[in-house]
């Protein structure tokens, strides 16, 4: 603009456009690398027992094929058979310890998968009523002053670090009950899910054309009736999308679970007790000194990644079908 040197202007134009394309390329490469690594190494760690077995300590002992032989119990000498023997198939030498260290990964993450589904599912149960009704409020009473306050609080929740949600529930629930529990984890996740559900519900309800509300009103329907029978059904695919994204976000969250759920090595069904979760296992196996468990960290990351990918692709399909009402 400042110069009339056309050639120079054109050069600058080409250069800057090229640079921004280059920047995109540079940034996309490591990001694709992350997905690629997780999918390739992770899928290598996957086996059938990875999904059907729970935690097994690292060992190079052969898998027990038959029941251990019944040891005769002598009531006069109860400690007769209690000699500490090296594990079957090993001699207890240094070499064996190294072998254990380098042993192939054993066991699986079934307890983590079940735990994550339980914790995130219950979290969603907590988050859904609050999120959806707050979203309805923000959309249907959008001009009220209080709506601005709610909207701001939503932004605060979605912007605050996930560890803060963990600390909150740790102090309010875990310290009060003196018990780490799956439910506490669900509450922490609910804090993170609520803003997502609320904002998606609001956005989706706002996309429903005003004419539909007017038509319902023209037929004499009160607001609550038209909201539940006309507006909500019209926006349902979008809201389901938001719920799925919230679930995926909650399922992948680790930091609040460290402070609330603690983790476990077995399948637990009591939601008032500590429970295993996939992100927790990923974290623990990554920090583990055993290479076998490190492999399992990749496997757990793979499962988490698949969950996120699947949810996002489903969301893509859902929003495209409903008339491209995504942003």
């Amino acid at each position: 603009m400042r110069t009339f040197n056309y050639r120079r202007r054109k050069l600058v134009d080409q250069l800057m456009r090229g640079l921004s394309a280059l920047a995109t390329g540079c940034a996309v490469i490591p990001l694709i690398a992350i997905i690629g690594y997780v999918l390739t190494i992770g899928s290598g760690a996957i086996s059938w027992s990875f999904f059907t077995d729970i935690y097994q300590p690292p060992s190079n002992a052969p898998e027990p094929t038959a029941e251990a032989p019944e040891v005769a119990y002598d009531p006069n000498d109860p400690f007769a058979n209690l000699t500490v023997e090296p594990e079957a198939g090993t001699t207890g030498s240094t070499e064996d310890v190294t072998n254990v260290y380098n042993a192939a990964p054993r066991g699986g993450v079934l307890h983590g998968i079940l735990g994550t589904l339980t914790i995130a599912g219950i979290g969603l149960l907590f988050a859904l009523p609050i999120g959806i009704f707050a979203g309805i409020y923000l959309s249907e009473f959008r001009n009220e002053r209080f709506a601005t306050v709610v909207r701001f609080c939503c932004d605060v929740l979605s912007g605050s670090p996930s560890i803060v949600a963990g600390v909150t529930i740790y102090v309010l629930v875990v310290l009060q009950t003196q018990q780490f529990s799956a439910v506490a984890g669900s509450m922490a996740l609910a804090i993170l899910m609520i803003p997502i559900v609320t904002r998606t519900t609001e956005e989706m309800l706002k996309l429903v054309p005003e004419t539909m509300r007017e038509a319902a009103r023209g037929l004499g329907a009160p607001t609550w009736y038209s909201t539940f029978t006309v507006v909500l059904p019209a926006a349902l695919p979008g809201i389901v999308t938001g719920v799925m994204l919230a679930f995926a976000r909650g399922a992948g969250e680790t930091a609040p679970l460290i402070l609330t759920v603690l983790g476990s090595n077995i399948i637990t069904t009591d939601i008032f007790k500590p429970m295993a979760a996939l992100p927790l296992l990923t974290y623990r196996y990554t920090e583990s000194p055993y290479p076998g468990e490190n492999t399992q960290a990749w496997g757990a990351a793979f499962v988490l990644m698949m969950l996120v990918l699947l949810m996002n692709i489903l969301v893509r399909i859902a929003t495209r079908k409903s008339g491209g009402n995504s942003r």
């Binding site: 990001l31 690398a33 680790t254 930091a255 960290a297 990351a301 996002n312």
Partner: peptide, 24 residues
């Protein structure tokens, strides 16, 4: 596709970035 990729990456759990960071 690029927008989708960017949005997808924003949704990847942080622990996965951690795993990739530690091992790779």
């Amino acid at each position: 596709p690029l927008s989708f990729l960017v949005e997808l990456l924003a949704a990847v759990p942080s622990v996965i970035y951690g795993v990739w960071g530690v091992f790779v």
